[in-house]
Design a protein around this nucleic acid. Structure first.
Lengths: 211, 211
DNA sequence: ATTCATAATTATGAATTCAAAATACTTGCA
DNA sequence: TGCAAGTATTTTGAATTCATAATTATGAAT
């Protein structure tokens, strides 16, 4: 997440990112048909790179392709959300446990900084989400498993399809911060077991709020 | 895995599958450049669906796209392999634990059948791999979390990039069967904890053999 | 007015074409 | 002979075009 890319992103990648944003901010709603012609025109591009982008989003799970009838924004059910949370919990808890054992003091210090910053941004929802994601991703980066990073990134995208619902149960932000605090403390004390269960608790509560 | 698709697969999907097979059987080696023109010609198709297929494979991790210089078969390092094994262990162990608690007798019976069949096919490597995969995937299917199924399927593809190396450490097949037996017994006794650790053991040993 | 058949329109899937970038190949020169 | 500069070729990225499937609109018959 620190350095995205040196090379000027390929067009289909740029388009994919644009579409992701539109999906996350619900400009394109779950279940909605994606009009290739319209969107290609809007962006002033041809359908070719757009269709490539759609295939990437389909692989991420954000979009569902139906043969001979185009692309649709994926609809996620309650079960989907709880299934995804279970996986995120599993993957991130394992990462945290590893981080407790291997992080350098400097890495933990930077994580702490992000955490502090998060505490100061509970008002602006957009910013809070960005910082929250950064906190989680920093832990993954320290764990240093690029395949897990990819899986978690994809799952988080799916989770975002549902975000409006958890936007926000009363008091969730405060609870969430307290849970981050618990994770942070466990990491500083370098206790893998506690770090793991703190992350699990965080996701269990997150799921409650999301459903 | 039981029923793949009703609809006659889209062309780009068919091509993606063809390419996967060629990659797995090392006709396309890790690091190798993928010649779009040549392959499109071979299949008698245009570059358009081929390029869509390549983007799908890139999302799976089998292929790496380099801007303005095409697609390359992904090279996986030792660390990649051990990272992927860790994730598979985590995800499949969790699935097995869930299955121990929720599988019907009939589902376990069918799993048992696959396991028995596997014991009878230790000679033909191709067949053994297929049945082995089926055993693992059946457990995931029972656990019934489509997002996990997708993650595991993708990770297993990456693992296959490396398969030639574990093809085969002396005695690995016998050990592997014994480990499956342990998993099977834990499931039949409906013991989640033991099922989980049996799966973890299976992957730990698998990793040793793969590296 | 409703339903069915058929025609017109639209959208998707895939081939072809075109522009620009990267690579390979000369050829001239030290 | 080795190397550099410039040219030719190849290859990628993206637009355009074309064929066909799916949808919508039209109109006739009951």
């Amino acid at each position: 997440m620190t350095s995205k890319t040196l090379t000027p992103l390929a067009l289909y990648e740029q388009v994919a990112e644009q579409l992701r944003q539109r999906i996350f901010r619900r400009e394109l709603e779950p279940g909605a048909w994606i009009d290739e012609l319209k969107i290609a025109e809007e962006y002033g591009i041809s359908r070719t790179p757009l269709r490539e982008a759609l295939k990437v989003l389909a692989a991420e799970g954000l979009v569902t392709m139906k043969l001979r009838r185009g692309a649709y924004v994926t609809e996620v059910s309650r079960k989907d959300i709880s299934d995804v949370y279970r996986l995120l919990s599993l993957l991130e808890a394992d990462a945290a446990a590893e981080v407790a054992g291997k992080a350098t003091d400097e890495q933990l210090q930077r994580l702490q900084q992000t955490h502090e910053e998060l505490k100061l941004n509970t008002a602006d929802a957009e910013r809070f989400f960005a910082l929250n994601e950064s906190f989680h991703m920093q832990i993954l980066d320290i764990a240093d498993n690029r395949w897990r990073n990819q899986l978690v990134a994809d799952l988080r995208k799916v989770m975002k399809l549902n975000r409006h619902k958890s936007l926000f149960k009363q008091g969730r932000i405060e609870d969430s911060l307290a849970e981050h605090e618990a994770i942070m403390q466990a990491l500083l004390q370098r206790d893998p077991k506690i770090a793991m269960s703190a992350v699990q608790q965080h996701f269990a509560n997150g799921l409650d709020a999301a459903i």
